[in-house]
Design a binder for these strands. Structure first.
Lengths: 221, 221
DNA sequence: GCACGTTTCAAACAGTCGTTTCAATCAACT
DNA sequence: AGTTGATTGAAACGACTGTTTGAAACGTGC
């Protein structure tokens, strides 16, 4: 599929590079294929970007520039801490995990960088990830004012880990429970589930499910 | 570092291939470097394994053969469902996430396959992952007998997601909260944290932290 | 029309990749 | 010793990689 829009060759290369890198990874992606996709000569990459590594870096920056639509601070701060957390989780699932819009390469590329870091990770964390992380820490701090930093960090990772799992291990999950069952785990359900799970753990909502009582001594049937 | 044990060339190749594939990924790893590490000729790979892809596949099988020490069923079934879940989480963190033993390539390679699947994923899921997953489902089913399958799956993913996050996003986490703070999240602390978090969410333990009460109308200070 | 800097192009560069070939080596058995 | 089959070795294969080169093509200002 050859993309030939009325934009510049450089921007078209960046777009194609983002898709190719996201899909195949840095090593497996080739600049010849990237150039072919936009109908450009393979020398164009070195002319516009200098090298393959620079192209990858610029694609990564483009990814977190386009992929991270920042929520207005004031929208996020509305309501109780519990509501703020639920809103954060919903937004995180919707945008970062991006279950619905599978054709965007931006978050896929950032995920790749997270999992197998290159020299670009430092910048990515500083520019894109840390701001969001600090917001989550703020919400959790307001929700549980008395916890120390260590517990606070672990709480944040518990929230993020649950969300990201559907991205990082999506293909495994799909095979574990079957195609149909996995598709039924849509944004709405997962958003409610993870919110309820976390809020219950924090004592900000009733337990997710009615289980055996804690006190009863049921040592297995 | 050249490894020259008294084992066969084939097994030494497999070991070196596992390390190389785990460290660099399938594409970036080269069979010449693998052979160099064990002092073998690069034709040895094609002689013993047929192709690079077959070598990768066998390394992956070796990984889940050596890396998954199955817990005796009867040890896992002791105590209440809550205790079983805590024990599962502890074991999962200890072995799969392997925070302590960083020099083993087995789980790194399997993680890679999970995140960036090849044709080998099907086998890996069937042989290594699903059995453990079914055990977790069993525990959760005993802990919450009344939930439907959809909720059950989401619960299992919440447990696994929290644990795996320290593997998949370890480097990002480290940079987000700092080296020292991340090192303080050791196996014991994380095991207790995630267990407490999940059990509280299920109503099998008191909330992790004392937060603002649910009923109070604190609309933000 | 002419010269200018920018952009594109085909071609070749040196290097690495996975794989193949075939001769040399080795251990084991008659 | 001699033969057989399994294993290793150096070298080359064709295909691909990222990168460089130098000449065309382009639009723009004089």
């Amino acid at each position: 599929m050859v993309v030939t829009e009325a934009t510049t060759t450089k921007s078209r290369l960046l777009e194609a590079a983002g898709q190719e890198f996201a899909q195949k990874g840095y090593d497996a992606a080739s600049i010849r294929k990237i150039c072919d996709r936009v109908g450009a000569n393979c020398a164009a990459v070195n002319y516009h970007f200098g090298s393959k590594e620079q192209l990858y870096l610029e694609a990564l920056l483009e990814a977190h520039r386009c992929g991270t639509q920042v929520i207005p601070e004031e929208f996020l701060l509305q309501g109780t801490p519990a509501e703020q957390l639920a809103r954060f989780i919903h937004h995180f699932l919707k945008n970062v995990v991006a279950l619905a819009q599978k054709n965007t390469w931006h978050h896929t590329l950032m995920l790749r960088e997270m999992i197998q870091p290159t020299v670009a990770l430092e910048t990515l964390v500083r520019e894109a990830i840390r701001p969001k992380f600090e917001r989550l820490l703020g919400i959790l701090r307001r929700a549980c004012p008395d916890v120390d930093d260590r517990r606070l960090h672990a709480l944040a990772f518990s929230v993020i880990g649950q969300c990201l799992h559907y991205r990082t291990a999506g293909e495994v999950n799909r095979r574990l429970i079957g195609e149909d069952a996995y598709e039924s785990l849509d944004l709405e359900f997962l958003s409610h589930h993870i919110s309820g799970f976390c809020l219950a753990a924090l004592g900000l909502a009733p337990p997710l499910v009615q289980s055996h009582t804690v006190s009863s001594s049921d040592v297995k049937a």
